[in-house]
Each structure stands twice: as structure tokens, then as C-alpha cells.
Design a protein around this nucleic acid. Structure first.
Length: 619
RNA sequence: CAGGGUGUAGCUCAGCUUGGUAGAGCGCUUGGUUUGGGUCCAAGAGGCCGCAGGUUCAAAUCCUGUCACCCUGACCA
């Protein structure tokens, strides 16, 4: 057993694609032959009314999944086979990257989450349940706490590191709104890995593992046949420093990423940097006299703009944040153009503070902010404010702004006239990037290039966690200098069930799913035209046996159904190759060969050449 | 959490306004027919009309409550 695994890993080292081809062409692997009549593939002509996205509709109609409750699904045999194939690829690549598989419980005591405060930060998304003794438990959304506490009792020395442990397991999240079939579930299949290090740099350090995992993820998604993009990302509530998301590219994706067509730089909206933009001098001439306008009961920029007859891109949006970090100003006030969105991460870094939150309304009012009607003038009227002005909001010309007075806005706001000398004090006013990037913004990595938007589905996410969890939970090791140091961690996730759905989103047509070779539940569908014809059955047996011996997985449609039904179902199920056994071709010693992707009529292939022909399209 | 919508046969849905014995298509069973892209004909089986109260001689239909599910938003490794 060990030897076999060893061989396989070795086989991957020289060239992953070669090894992949060998595995897929069946080298050293026995294939499967499954009769349709003896498995469970409940195809339907119509999808349930609540299925809206293509992957949900197709996976339901083709008999892969069934809904059990909101965001909870059965994985029927076909889906199970796809998941197993994805898991197989994940295992091979992770083992090659030095990770080791284990299994942790989905159920865990709630107290585990107290130390890291994730009971609060994860909030309602954490599934809680009470046991018979009245103790609180959680259904794990991820396993940082469990694995950190595990290592705490077992790892004491830097010599025991690095370590990279992973599992493939069911995860639970009490989503505010499960939706889109398998794409956003309350219970789903996830691969999560955690790495542990005594250093960041160098051999055995976090960066080395992170890079190895990045490469492994790239291999995994490539081998799965997915069109994907690795993008820079915010690390979110899980915390940490660096992070990348792996997105399957498809128009129906929920997430937007921005991409520079010249440099290849890609990042999600929260993270995306913006290239150099023109800034104002703050000395431009006023566009007119400052005029107050009565604007009561208007909920947003759009509505205010309509009443004032000003387009949002000529309005200043002024947002008040409270500094939650150590030291620094009490308030951080960010100003962006009305049609832009403030980016908290960028506000934080430009202000040079470690944590901010949207100012609590009551506190802000008490401090003197006319919440909802704030203007940049607060720099002169409220104590402890640092003002951050987005480059695009720093120019001259006409501006509308809040009036620092409830129910009022002003027209012809002019930076110099309204704000004055404070503009020249770099400790009070900073101009830079504090907003989300949008399509058409200058690329941060290539002069003259403009950012483009792409839609995608997040299927993988890797993080450099640092010491967030080890520090909070006291996981330390002794280093070579006899000092106790918190362990440095990374964590790495792949949504396995989501990957299956994302693949369908990416690869389907009107008739059904089109599986990539590597994760198709079976490679070949053999359709027997007459289920009770001895000659056809004999030919089917021969073809199936040959394919199986070549290491291929075969689904043979032996049902007593009309040809039309079988063909429709074959398209729906979406196996890469369909071989049809019928009288006409058989009379010439042939079968019909057709790829799901290629469509068309199909070629006649001699019985003896079937395996070769199928192999020729394996990819 | 806010706003909207839907619960009737395995699936898609009609019936509800105006209360009076539960409907269609697909699927399923049986028989026949047909046999290369969801055949055709006939006969069947199948429903606590989400659940609980109420109004009424009588409730799928009206009223109240409740639960579930879906959509938009908020939220979201």
C-alpha cells in the first residue's frame, strides 16, 4: 500500500501533466462498468421551480442532487463519483505538496470558540446547538480552533515543525440566506488544511508552505479542467496577512474580480489596488457661492442628488469611522466621490491604524458629527479627526456635500474656501486611495492599462494566518534560542461541493452538463439501442470490458427506453464520450463515437479500435 | 434581519376573486402500438390542498396564528 502510494507520488514529481495523463488513461488503474438500470439516476424533464442558476437546474435534472432542506442536499451516486474524483485530485496534489490527511469532528464544544472570539466575529453564521445536558456546541464552519488546541498538547519544539495537516469533511454554516443550489449551502463539503511553522521565511517557513499550496491549488484546479483565476484577496474575519482566492471564471459568478489585461494582476474588489490617479491641489477656484439646500428624509446619495439636481459623481460622500486600534486619532473620516464606495481596508492603512469600525451613530452625534450630513469641514470643528480624501474627490470644480446640519446639504463646496489651512497639515489631511476599485480604473501594475471586471465563483482560498490563532490559544514552541514563540500558521480551503457546481456553471449547454474528463463521474457512456438484442448486448459487453481494462469508467445505458429518451438523458448527464451501439453500425463491425463537447453526428469506429479512439480524446 | 412571493399528486402548475364531493400535463403501473433525439392509444394507481385554530349547514377557497420554502437586499473562509 505504502509502496503504491509512493510510486504514485513519485510519478507526479517529474511532470504533473504526464502523471495526470497516465492516471487518466488508466495506467495501473482498473476502471468501472456500471449499468444504468442498477444505479440511481433520477433524471427529470423539468427542474423544481426554485432552481434558478444553471448548475442547480442541471445537477437536479440530470439526477446528481436533490434538495433536503434550505441549503442542504443529497449527493446521489453520480454526484458522489464527481466529488470522489475531485477529492482524489486534491489528495494527490496536497500529498505531493507535503500535506498529510487527518479527520476532525464536525461537532465541537462551543467554548473552543471563546478564546479566539470567533463566537462573536463569526456571529450568526456559526451553527449552535445545545446537547441534553444543556451545554452549547457548535457545528464547525472551519477548524482553526480544533487543530490549534490539538497541536497545543502535542507540539513543543520548532524541530517538530513544519507541519501541514488537512481533512476533507462536511462543514456547517448557518448562512443568512442559502441560495443558488450547491453554490451557497448551509452544509457543504470542504477540504481544509492548516500549516504550522516556527519561521515565516526560509526552509520550513510559512512562505514556503504558502507557495507550495498556491502551486498545489493551481495544479488541482487545472487538473479538474476548470478555467480559473488566482486573485489577491482580503483575509476576512478569519484574520491574517496575505491571501489569495481561486475563482472559477464564469459569467454567472457571484463575485467580481478586477484584472489588469497587461500585467495579469488580479484581485477581488475589497483588495484591488488602484494605479496612480490625478489629485487636486486644493487650490482650485470655487465654482460659485456656497449654497445650502434643504434635503430632509432622503436615504441615500442617489435621492439627495435627484433633489439637488446633482449627479453622484459630483458629490462628496463623507463617512465617519471610529478608531478601534491602539493610539492615533479618535475619528477617521473618509471622503470619496458619491458614485464610489469607501474601502475599510484602505482607510485603515492610509490612516495608519490597526482597526476601525463604522462610527456608532449615537457616539458620533455626541462628538459633533451631523451623521448623514457630514462634510469635510469637520476637520476644523470636531476634535481628534484625521481626514482621508480619495484622489478622485480631491479635485476642483463643482461639489455638493453635506452641510454639517441635519436635513441640509450644500452646493459649490470648495476645498480651500471651506476647509482652509488644515489642508496643508499632513497629519490632519491625507490624500490617497480609500475606495473600492471599479472597472476602468488605472492598473496598479502597468502604466496606461485599465482594470477590467470579471465574474467568478470562489472555489479556493489560502491565507497566511500568522499568529492570530496560536497567540489567542497559546500554541507555542521552543525555538533554537530557547525562547517560547507562538507558532506561525497558514490555512487553506477548497469548497469541494462548490467546485462541482462551479464546474457545471462554467461548462454546460442547453441540453445538459459537459464534464471535463478528469472529474466526470464516468468517462464513457455506452448507449445500447435495443436493450434486449443479443448482438448489441454482446458488443456492449466487449466494449465495456475493453474500456474498463484500459482503466476507464463506463456507464452503460441498458434501460428499456426509446432512443430519444436515452440520448436526451446522455446529454443531460454529460459524460465526455458517448458510444452508441446500434444495428446499422454493428453490421459493419462498428459502433458510433461522439464527444459531448463536440456534438455533431458521431464517427463510426471499429470495435477493436474503440479504446484507442476514446484515449485519443482523453485530456 | 427588512421587503416581496409561494405552499394543491413524485415534478410543473390550474382551481381560491364569487365557499357546495379534488383537476390538467409530465412521470408511474398494466395492455396494445411504435422503435435513431423525451412515440401514440386505452385503462389504472396516486392528494390530511403545509400545519393549527376560527367563521359557516358546508372551507383548498374567507379570517387568525404558525411553520416551511423561494426571490431582492443586508450578510458572506
Amino acid at each position: 500500500m505504502w509502496q503504491r502510494i509512493g510510486e504514485r507520488v513519485l510519478a507526479f514529481l517529474p511532470s504533473l501533466t504526464m502523471a495526470n495523463a497516465a492516471q487518466q488513461s488508466g495506467f495501473g488503474r482498473r476502471g468501472t462498468v456500471q449499468k444504468w438500470s442498477r444505479t440511481f439516476i433520477p433524471t427529470t424533464r423539468e427542474a423544481p421551480a426554485d432552481a434558478e442558476v444553471p448548475s442547480h437546474i442541471m445537477l437536479h435534472r440530470a439526477g446528481y442532487i436533490r434538495a433536503v432542506g434550505a441549503g442542504i442536499y443529497d449527493y446521489l451516486p453520480l454526484a458522489h463519483r464527481v466529488l470522489e474524483k475531485v477529492k482524489g485530485i486534491i489528495r494527490e496534489e496536497l500529498e505531493a505538496a507535503g500535506a498529510v490527511e487527518m479527520l476532525m469532528p464536525a461537532l465541537e464544544p462551543f467554548e473552543l470558540f471563546n478564546e479566539t472570539k470567533r463566537d462573536e466575529t463569526y456571529g450568526d453564521n456559526l451553527f449552535r446547538l445545545k446537547d441534553r445536558k444543556g451545554r452549547m456546541n457548535a457545528l464547525a464552519p472551519t477548524h482553526e480552533e480544533v487543530i490549534t488546541s490539538l497541536l497545543k498538547g502535542a507540539v513543543n519544539s520548532y524541530a517538530q515543525l513544519p507541519l501541514n495537516l488537512y481533512q476533507i469533511q462536511t462543514k456547517f454554516r448557518d448562512e443568512a440566506r442559502p441560495r443558488a443550489g450547491l453554490l451557497r449551502c448551509r452544509e457543504f463539503l470542504m477540504k481544509d488544511a492548516y500549516s504550522f511553522h516556527s519561521t515565516v521565511e526560509g526552509k520550513g517557513g510559512l512562505n514556503e508552505a504558502y507557495d507550495a499550496m498556491f502551486a498545489a491549488y493551481s495544479n488541482i484546479f487545472k487538473r479538474c479542467g476548470l478555467d480559473y483565476l488566482a486573485v489577491e484577496a482580503e483575509s476576512g474575519p478569519i484574520g491574517g496577512s496575505a491571501s489569495h482566492e481561486f475563482m472559477v471564471r464564469c459569467a454567472s459568478g457571484e463575485d467580481t474580480v478586477l484584472r489588469c489585461p497587461v500585467s495579469g494582476y488580479a484581485a477581488n474588489v475589497e483588495k484591488c489596488e488602484i494605479g496612480e490617479r490625478a489629485k487636486g491641489t486644493f487650490n482650485e477656484a470655487p465654482s460659485g457661492e456656497l449654497t445650502e439646500v434643504h434635503t430632509p428624509n432622503l436615504p441615500g446619495i442617489e435621492e439627495v442628488g435627484k433633489v439637488m439636481k446633482v449627479k453622484p459623481d459630483r458629490m462628496l460622500k463623507t463617512i465617519v469611522f471610529a478608531n478601534k486600534g491602539e493610539g492615533g486619532p479618535k475619528w477617521v473620516v473618509a471622503v470619496v466621490r458619491g458614485d464610489h464606495e469607501v474601502n475599510e481596508g484602505k482607510v485603515k492603512s492610509l490612516a495608519g491604524v490597526s482597526a476601525i469600525e463604522l462610527a456608532p451613530v449615537e457616539e458620533a452625534k455626541k462628538a459633533g458629527f451631523a451623521v448623514g450630513y457630514v462634510s469635510p469641514r469637520v476637520i476644523n470643528t470636531v476634535q481628534g479627526v484625521v481626514l482621508l480624501v480619495d484622489s478622485d474627490a480631491s479635485g476642483g470644480g463643482f461639489w455638493a456635500s453635506g452641510a454639517d446640519k441635519i436635513d441640509h446639504h450644500v452646493k459649490h463646496f470648495n476645498w480651500r474656501r471651506e476647509v482652509g489651512a488644515a489642508l496643508d497639515d499632513a497629519s490632519k489631511v491625507k490624500v490617497g486611495d480609500v475606495r473600492n476599485a471599479v472597472v476602468g480604473d488605472p492598473s496598479p501594475r502597468a502604466a496606461g492599462a485599465k482594470l477590467e471586471a470579471e465574474k467568478g465563483i470562489e472555489v479556493g482560498h489560502i491565507f497566511k494566518l500568522g499568529t492570530k490563532y496560536s497567540a489567542a490559544m497559546g500554541l507555542q514552541v521552543l525555538n533554537s534560542d530557547q525562547q517560547r514563540i507562538p507558532v506561525i500558521m497558514g490555512c487553506y480551503g477548497i469548497g469541494v461541493s462548490r467546485t462541482m457546481a462551479a464546474c457545471v456553471e462554467m461548462s454546460h449547454d442547453q441540453d445538459g452538463i459537459i464534464w471535463p474528463w478528469a472529474i466526470a463521474p464516468y468517462h464513457v457512456q455506452v448507449t445500447v439501442m435495443k436493450h434486449d438484442d443479443a448482438a448489441q448486448l454482446a458488443a456492449a459487453d466487449q466494449v465495456c470490458a475493453a474500456l474498463r481494462d484500459a482503466g476507464l469508467d463506463v456507464l452503460v445505458d441498458d434501460r428499456d427506453e426509446r432512443p430519444g429518451v436515452k440520448f436526451k438523458d446522455a446529454d443531460l448527464v454529460g459524460l465526455p464520450v458517448r458510444i452508441t451501439i446500434g444495428d446499422k453500425a454493428l453490421a459493419e463491425g462498428c459502433v458510433e463515437f461522439k464527444t459531448r463537447k463536440g456534438g455533431g453526428k458521431g464517427d463510426l469506429v471499429k470495435l477493436a479500435d474503440v479504446v484507442t479512439k476514446v484515449m485519443s480524446v482523453a485530456q
